[in-house]
Design a binder for these strands. Sequence first.
DNA 1: AATGGTCACAACCGCACAATG
DNA 2: TCATTGTGCGGTTGTGACCAT
Length: 211
Amino acid sequence: MGRAPCCDKANMKKGPWSPEEDEKLKSYIEQHGTGGNWIALPQKIGLKRCGKSCRLRWLNYLRPNLKRGDFSAEEDNIICSLFVSIGSRWSVIATRLPGRTDNEIKNYWNTKLKKRLFGSGGGGGGAASRKVKPSPPASMDNGETTRSPAVVPAAGGGEDSVGNYSSGCSSASGLMSELDELLQFSLEEMGWLFGDESSSAVAPPPAAAMN
DNA sequence: AATGGTCACAACCGCACAATG
DNA sequence: TCATTGTGCGGTTGTGACCAT
């Protein structure tokens, strides 16, 4: 419906952040916090950046306690099993991986785990390049793009728990325990994936899981 | 050594939701 | 109750690094 852009793009700098910008943003937030208003923040510190851009930069890169580097096998498991359980709710998945950001997880999934799960398998799939506009695995992304609850499994009354998810994650504890259960369940299913890496690509994922 | 292709990461965009007036 | 504004999320794209030929 054509919302007004969150900021005046014409006067905004885009692209990679410079160390100076990082430093400005980081030191300001560490001292004053975000002030609850990302839009106003860049103006306060004299950054020609969109508020959303600042927020993203902080969350994904500057925030303390961020874990960077390779994902462990355990993290792989958690990501995969949660994806199977709740779909591409990266923010929810990120809550299970302290120090990891949703963006990082999303990237990791898109570049590595997805291939391991669906990729190459069919034969020739592995050669698919992203430049070819990666036709998403037919079994997922089924046209249900953002925030469709359709991926949420009905099993275990999932809707009530995961469906409750909102940007605030208000009932975090309930969600967490529910996810714990899902994890238990899904980790078993995912055994085929990580149990035998060499042949995993050919093994079809559990049908139920692909819904 | 040069070139082309692929991969991985960072950042942007648009949409939907929640809060507030 | 409705309109507006800010925030959060997921999808997508751009770009540099790496690898193979």
